[in-house]
């Protein structure tokens, strides 16, 4: 990279900087629900419909955000299903994990399936399997799937790549307003 290239790139940034300011999707303290759809488990490749329902509820229990429609957690289940279809060991890990979660639910909560339980009960079940390989798989997939999603970034306020906008120099890098005056 020559100095000339650097200078050129710099000028490009100056040109594109100062464009549209970030529009917050947040009104007040709560978040507007993200438009999404219900999610159906009947198209899964490797997993059964019932397994899909359990995983959906599991993902939401890990990171419960009321503004997120089921389809966001459903994407996580789809991704797990894809991987399980290509990996027999993973497929088995999921099946066994789900079976254990269902056993725990039915035994402790009046024969109800995990996805039928309230959040408190679901949380207790998830706590019981915390630390298992099944939990780790679901944890990693849900963390990456939910918080890697650009829609979620928008709601929570992570603004992503900035170089194409000329950085934050003119876009609020020092716009903090609530601090005590120095």
């Amino acid at each position: 990279m020559s100095n000339e290239d650097l200078e050129l790139r710099r000028r490009e940034f100056l040109k594109i900087a100062g464009g549209s300011a970030f529009m917050s999707l947040v009104a007040g303290a709560g978040f507007t629900a993200l438009p999404g759809t219900a999610w159906s488990a009947h198209h899964l490749k490797a997993l059964s419909e019932d397994e899909g329902k359990t995983l959906l509820a599991f993902a939401r229990t890990l990171f419960p955000h009321d503004f997120l429609a089921d389809s966001y957690y459903g994407n996580v289940v789809n991704a797990v299903d894809e991987k399980a279809a290509a990996d027999a060991a993973l497929r088995q890990q999921i099946t066994e994990g789900v079976a254990r979660v269902e056993r725990l639910s039915k035994k402790n909560f009046g024969d109800q399936s995990f996805h039928q339980l309230g959040e408190k009960a679901r949380t207790r079940v998830v706590k019981t399997v915390e630390g298992t390989p099944f939990f780790s798989t679901m944890y990693g997939e849900t963390l990456g799937g939910i918080y890697g999603h650009p829609d979620v970034w928008k709601v929570l306020g992570f603004e992503g790549s900035s170089v194409e906008h000329g950085g934050y120099l003119e876009r609020g890098f020092d716009d903090i307003s609530w601090l005590p005056k120095e």
């Binding site: 900035s162 934050y168 120099l169 890098f173």
Partner: peptide, 11 residues
């Protein structure tokens, strides 16, 4: 040194 000033990209 032939390099631009920081634009506060954050990365």
């Amino acid at each position: 040194d032939g390099r631009p000033a920081c634009r506060q990209l954050g990365f």
